[in-house]
Amino acid sequence: MALNPNKPKRLPGGVLLLVFCILSIVLMTLWVREGTTGPLHTLRSGVETVTAPVKNVGAVIGAPFRAVGDLITGVSTSTSTVEELRIQNEKLASELIRMEEYRQENERLSALLGLKDAYGLESVGARVIMKGADAWNRVITINKGTASGFTVGMPVLSANGGLIGQIESVSYDSSVVRLITDEKSGVAAFIQSNRTEGIWAGSVDGVLHLEFIAGDVEVKVGDPIITSGSGGVFPKGLAIGEVASIEFAPADVYKTIVVRPISRAGTYEEVLVITGSEAEIVAAQNTGTTTDTAGDASSAEAQQPEGTTGG
């Protein structure tokens, strides 16, 4: 196309650039400032609902590609035998930590009568339909949402009982779970053997760290790490992983502890979402029975969705 010096060719493009840039910055500012129930977050939730069927189809179509990706990612664990043993090992490690937690709690508190069982958790199974649509967030999408009673903040476990994340956003029939290995994840946890509390945090490279453990605290490689229940984000006693390495320089105040997660990211296809404790659900059902004389069955169904399994 010949250049015409009388016609300002670059002006429309430049104006458009300016308009789109301002619009993007305004959207970004609103997004950061508004709460999780704001209109932009609601819009994304709507998009998740609309795209959920597409993601479901993608999960089926992408299975062969995923197998190739897994092969490249884990060349050393390519045989089915090794994979089976690894899954079995993860399951046993998780069970061992849970059993140890029960044993220690029983030892300390057996004298107290009427102790409420903190581990009677209700959970609902869900299928993973997408694992991270982008490289910047360690998230998975599962195929159940508000229709199954899910809400933002519910903890998510792998099938072997290890904590893998927390629901970040939820739509009618799908939910996005941010994994514990993501750098935006982090909550109170303690070392099971000595009950020292710290903060576990994910990182960009997917490595879990237990932070703020003082230098004089005795920690051993292999010590189980579990949620402490502080802050009420996660129930107490959920297995996160075990200590993989410890670094401590004399000048440091805190130890640098790397945690090996029980549930390795990307290996699970089904997950369990903790919807509440058994005691809470029974109480809610009882309240519903006494207050709702009409006996609305739908409220009871909402408290105990289809596919509910004991935790």
Binding site: F20, S24, M28, L30, W31, L43, A133
Partner: peptide, 27 residues
């Protein structure tokens, strides 16, 4: 520029980052 902005916005809605971030980049 228009396609860049629209695709960026779509990416922001699909992914879990801040809305508008990829729209600005692609624009």
């Amino acid at each position: 520029t228009s396609v860049g902005f629209i695709l960026g916005l779509v990416y922001d809605l699909i992914a879990q980052g801040a809305l508008g971030a990829m729209a600005l980049v692609l624009t």
